[in-house]
Design a protein around this nucleic acid. Structure first.
Lengths: 169, 169
DNA sequence: ACTGAAAATGTCATAGA
DNA sequence: TCTATGACATTTTCAGT
């Protein structure tokens, strides 16, 4: 299993946080991405290590920030927000100094699912999920367009949104 | 199994799938969105119902499709994909009949995190996470732009991506 | 819908490779 | 340092009420 050469000494002494992830770690991550509620011992069996070792690895992955959290994927339509849109926002040139503040403002708006701060002809893209077109119009008209830093917006309705989950490999 | 109280009969006989969500259900959903690994009995205590009842509600929410799954949030940078981008894709007018096929093609490409099928001047927006700019260039040049159905692409690098989690309310 | 018991699971301490 | 085994605490699950 382990070789007895002196080189092995060095490689195993390196802390895990500073190295790349093991194949085993990557496999654990894939399984947890597919199902965050998969039991620890089932994960251990799937990747071929002991449950306690697996538990320690998962804990290390969380504490090192590789795993940022575990979240339920809730259907927006089921909670009364069946209309999704992508709103592109362009800011005035002089307003680009305090982008963090504007980002926090966007995060507080109702229905905002995610925020992309991008290069190119637009500054922000925000993905929103709202009850209906009236709520979308209100959001853009009353909360975004009127903002003094906003130079312009461009709203696209989302017909379909797919979050791609990669299979184990 | 059957109770003899006529009043309780009516209120409990309504199937949960056809009604709107209870305030208790909504609270459970919020907690699970914040932390999918929160223990059932902790959720039950937080929302003020018995663990068995809470467990039944969570199972019903899953089976009715309100909860689509539980997923680990893994930092893309930690798995060697530190460069994120949003690629806008415009299709040829004649190619818009088989959008589902093209969507499946996109979903199979490496690094694709999510796909937005939108209205407006673009047809698709895809959020990708890749190792470096070379991988991004390869993806656009060799896998997207060359596709016969693609009329044009527009790539924006993502400086920051924030997934907004709404607090309990 | 609640309570309590049994089964399954998660967690931690200790020890070996 | 990584891994494995076993004891213990917690949680899930299912019975009855």
């Amino acid at each position: 299993m382990t070789n007895d050469s002196s080189a092995a000494e060095f490689s195993s002494a390196v802390p895990k946080e500073r190295r790349g992830l093991d194949p085993v770690d990557r496999r654990i991550l894939e399984l947890l991405q597919a199902d965050a509620r998969m039991p620890n011992n089932a994960i251990a069996a799937a990747v071929g290590i002991a449950p306690s070792t697996c538990h320690g690895r998962i804990r290390a992955l969380q504490e090192s920030g590789v795993v940022r959290g575990f979240h339920a994927d809730v259907d927006p339509a089921a909670t009364g927000r069946g209309l999704q849109a992508m709103i592109a926002i362009r800011l005035h040139a002089h307003a680009r100094s305090n982008l963090a503040t504007f980002k926090d403002y966007l995060a507080q708006l109702p229905g905002v699912e995610s925020i992309f701060f991008v290069t190119g002809d637009r500054d922000f893209l925000i993905h929103v999920a709202l009850s209906d077109s009236e709520a979308l119009r209100d959001l853009v008209a009353h909360n975004i367009s009127v903002h003094p830093e906003v130079a312009g917006t461009n709203t696209s309705v989302i017909f379909e949104y797919v979050s791609v989950r990669r299979p184990a490999g």
